[in-house]
Structure formats: C-alpha cells, structure tokens
Design a protein around this nucleic acid. Sequence first.
DNA 1: CGGATGCGTACCGGTGAGCGGAACACGGCG
DNA 2: CGCCGTGTTCCGCTCACCGGTACGCATCCG
Lengths: 250, 250
Amino acid sequence: MRTGERNTAGDASTAARFAALLAAFGPGDTALGVSELARRTGLPKTSVHRLSQHLTEHGLLERDGTALRLGLRLFEIGQLAVRQRGLVDTARPLLADLREATHNTVHLAVLEGTEVVYLDILRGPDAPRLPSRIGGRFPAHATGVGKAILAFSPDDVVEKVIAGGLPRVSRRTITSPVLLRRQLAKVAAEATAYEREESSIGTVCVASPVVDATGYAVAAISVAGWVNRLRTERLAPAVRTAALALSRTV
Amino acid sequence: MRTGERNTAGDASTAARFAALLAAFGPGDTALGVSELARRTGLPKTSVHRLSQHLTEHGLLERDGTALRLGLRLFEIGQLAVRQRGLVDTARPLLADLREATHNTVHLAVLEGTEVVYLDILRGPDAPRLPSRIGGRFPAHATGVGKAILAFSPDDVVEKVIAGGLPRVSRRTITSPVLLRRQLAKVAAEATAYEREESSIGTVCVASPVVDATGYAVAAISVAGWVNRLRTERLAPAVRTAALALSRTV
DNA sequence: CGGATGCGTACCGGTGAGCGGAACACGGCG
DNA sequence: CGCCGTGTTCCGCTCACCGGTACGCATCCG
C-alpha cells in the first residue's frame, strides 16, 4: 500500500476516524471510492459512507460522481495554517531572490517529528525533477534542510530521528547514527548543511537553518540542483545570508 | 465579527463541530484560546476543549502553550486537495511565463459558491498590494477571474451569485444584476473579462476562463496591476492565450 | 444466460462516546 | 481584597453514532 498507515484500530474516537479518512488520501490519488477508503482506513464500509457524507456537507470532502476527493475548504484552511506561522509570507521575497541569483530550486521547510515538511518551493529554470513537493514530507536525515534543522535542535529531537532507524532513501543516504552525529556537529559549527545525492541520485543541496531567539531552528532554506553543475560551496554564503535575514524577522 | 459564520447551531453532527472549529480560524488570527473559539463557534467551552484535544492528537490542531493553532497536517492535506485537481501543477509554468511577460501579478482561481478561491498567485515585481491571498476568498462578481468564470457557467450558478445580493466591495463594485448580466454576456463573447477598480481602488485586472471539454469554466487566470500603468487591452491576448493553453490540458 | 464479485447505498436497534452544566485553579486588574 | 476572565476537571445522562445485514446495480466470465 502506497499510503502505508499503521492500523489505527482500537482508537475509536470520532476525531480519529475523521483524521484517518483525510489521511487516507495520498499524493497521486485523484479520487477514491468508499470501499477503497474503507480498506485503507480499516473502518467498516458503512461508517466510511456516513462519515464522508458528513464531511462532504461541510466542504472538507467533495463528491465526484460517487467517488470522493479532498475538499477545497481543506486547501483554504491549510493555507491559513502556514500563514499563521508567518514564515512563508516573509520568506517568499528572500526565496525569490535566492532563486534569481542561483537559477536553481529553492526550498523552505520545517521539521515535524522525524521528517521535514516543505512549506514552499520555487523551482529553478534549469532544475532537475526533484522528489520534493509543497506540503510533502521527506525523512529529515536524508535532506539538506533536515540536517540543517537537526543540527540546531535539542538532543532529544535528534535522538528521536535516530531511533526512527534512518531509513535509506537513496544509495547514498546516511544510515549510520555515528556518521550522522559527526555530520551534524560540523553543520552546527558552520551553520551550513550539505547533501550529496543522499535523497536523490544526481542532485545535491546546500542548506542553512532559520533560528529563533533561543538559537533553535524553526525552519531551513536550501538550494538544490544537479550534482555536476551546482557548486555547493560557492552558493553556501548566499543561502546562509538569506537564512540569517529570515532568522532576524522571526 | 470578521469570520462571520452563520450559526450552525441545530446541526449537532460531530462533523459540523469539527468543521466549525476549523472554520473559526480566520486570516490574521495566529492562535486562539478555548474561550475565544467557543465564542466564535457558539459551542460550549467544555466541548471546544474536548474537541480540540482530539484534533490535536491527530495533528489537525496544534497547541502553543494553552492557545490553539491550525496544525501543519492541515497544510499537507490541503496541498493534496488542490493537487488532486492537477490544475495548479500544470498551470504553474504558464503563470510564471505570464508574470515574466507582463511584470504584474498573476492569479489562478476557481469558483466555489458565490466566491472565488485563489489557488495560486505569482506577485509581480512592481505590483500593488492586492487583497488577494492564496487560499483566500473573494466575491466572484467583484473580480476579473470571477466574472470570467461566471460568463462560462450554467445559468443557475449566476443566479445564485445574484441571489447572494452582489455585496459592494469597493466603490466601483458592480451591484446591479442587470449590469452584471450585460457584462457577462460581453465576457462570454470575448472570452475575456475586465475589472476596473471593482475589488480594490487603484487596481485593474484582465482575466480569461479555463474551460473543460463541455465548454464550462473550471477556473480562470488573470493579470492585475495599477490602474494607470496596466494597459488591460494590450495584455488581453497574452492572458487569453495562456488560458487557452491551460484549457487544452484539462 | 445465470451467478459471482465488485461496487455504493438504505435500514434500524442497541449502546457507549460525546455532551455540557457545575465546579475548580490560576492570574491579572482595579 | 473581590472580581473578572482564563483554561481545566469531573460526572451522570442521552442521543447520535455504529456497523451488521440487506439491497440495487454494474461488470466480468463460464
């Protein structure tokens, strides 16, 4: 199953059912039927039917014939969710400049659990097809932004990531805890994280953390591009500068 | 009240409560307390407390101290919601070109009920501060994109908008049903809608509908800028062309 | 042509999850 | 000090949710 969710059976709270229903939709799905949703959520088909009816009444789900889609209202609410953080709005111009200057793809991401979530992405004109997606997730230890954030996070956050098993994403993903720790120490010293084909073969990335007043990271920005075209060391100062500028406004 | 919701009391469905809770957050709100949410939703404080607990457990809400924010997961799901439509992804490059060519702000929007929802916005370099916001709403009859969509929609859709009372947004908003109908007829003939300070004094806009195989509009794109700097007639062909290109891919 | 298998949908009685009033702990403010 | 206004806990009642069963309708196949 693409959207491999752990079975939430046992947690019978109504909220859990709603959340499970919304989470059942994965990228790539356009519209799902009642039975498919029942299969993915582990809920009885009847319940899915009723729940989706209710959700549809409030715009959180939409019907396309008999199939179900995520509702437009979710998009609206989702935009408010990031807007509350303010980050995206203030970062936009900075990211745009960075893209202009580097002609590559620029990322803004935050950490959630053991993964990063991309808040904004500006694709470069001659950029590779990266696996990143606005609103998408990626294992933190396998990305530049992730390592930048982790290096400026409390220990227990890093421990949790390591405890997660450092899943291999590409052939070059760092899967050794000791190696990761060593890298993070270096990142912490330089305030710059590099990533070389660890998330996707053929691409590299240079990232820098956005920190708050306490010195802990709240986000990170990065520039990514082709491995043989992008000179990461050369771009590091630009990325670092943008991250610092953003840190000042947070 | 900014987020003037009609009182949903009477609809006691649990889903209604969840939806009301999420809808209680408006743009400009960063974090709300239990009491404030209870006030806005009309729900008992106790219920808000319990519901928000449940939602928090599933990442749909987040706690900042004792206050509540919309959760990051809502952003993720919201992105999937638009992605399912495919529109945004395919439109992006076209919109980028349009911005490049016009140096003004470009909009992509769809109609929902009597309002348009902005799916994507690319701000121009020397653009005015428009009231539009990604994920934001605006009365359809007061915007270029709205009129473009309405002109290519079934009659009952237009009727519903008119029945909504054509609220005045700016000094120049069209509030007369007969005038609106006459304009829409012209828009339908030219496949191009103009808007002159009807949503915001000082700005104008030229829009064109994105239509599906049946000929009905599914979205619209527009270019907006300063009233005294933007020659709408001159930009019309560019907007029209982009809209046609997008229509072909839908 | 059965009939087998998938789908979405409707019916309906039992029951426990959600409900919300009352009461409490805290923390400014006058 | 009392007096707001918070957020939070407790607890018994009840009604809305639950989900097994059943049905109409497609599609596929022997």
